[in-house]
């Protein structure tokens, strides 16, 4: 790994993916340090506006993490999250932002290794894309 670190913001649901991130920690799994984790109670809390704002503020990537479909602590929140993320991608594309900088993953609470894997994968993808053009073009 070389060069400057990327800015990756992650919105993780409290019950599954955030717990998986905790588990990755307790299992001492090492992963790329670019990610900044924010806790929300459910992935359905993630407003497309959050995602777009993150990208417009210069985030290189945004990860949304929720429970496996069917396992949402609030029953069906992640189905809504799936739609919201799709909307965010669509709007991002319309705005000229790269929708591939947005990723949605289902990671169950017991899957620490999967969390580390997803972070590494996503970080690598973002690395390959390079810095977000946003800060250079000075979005308003």
């Amino acid at each position: 790994m070389s060069g400057k670190r990327k800015k990756i913001v992650a919105f993780l649901c409290n019950w599954c993916t955030y717990t998986a991130a905790d588990l990755a920690g307790t299992s001492r799994l090492k992963y790329e340090p670019d990610i900044r984790i924010l806790r929300v109670m459910c992935s359905s809390r993630v407003d497309p506006v959050f995602i777009l704002k993150a990208l417009m503020d210069g985030a290189d990537g945004v990860l949304v993490g929720g429970c496996e479909l069917g396992d949402c602590h609030y029953q069906r929140g992640n189905y809504y999250a799936r739609r919201k993320v799709a909307v965010a991608k669509k709007i991002a594309a319309d705005m000229g932002l790269d929708p591939e900088r947005i990723r949605l993953s289902w990671i169950s609470a017991s899957d620490g290794p999967r969390f580390a894997e997803v972070v590494n994968e996503f970080t690598r993808e973002i690395e390959e894309k390079g810095d977000t053009p946003v800060k250079h073009e000075a979005y308003v």
Binding site: K7, V9, F11, R36, L38, V40, D57, G58, A59
Partner: peptide, 14 residues
Amino acid sequence: FGNEQILSEMEGVM
């Protein structure tokens, strides 16, 4: 978990 709270945290970490 209001918009302000989440977004200000986001700005903070970025």
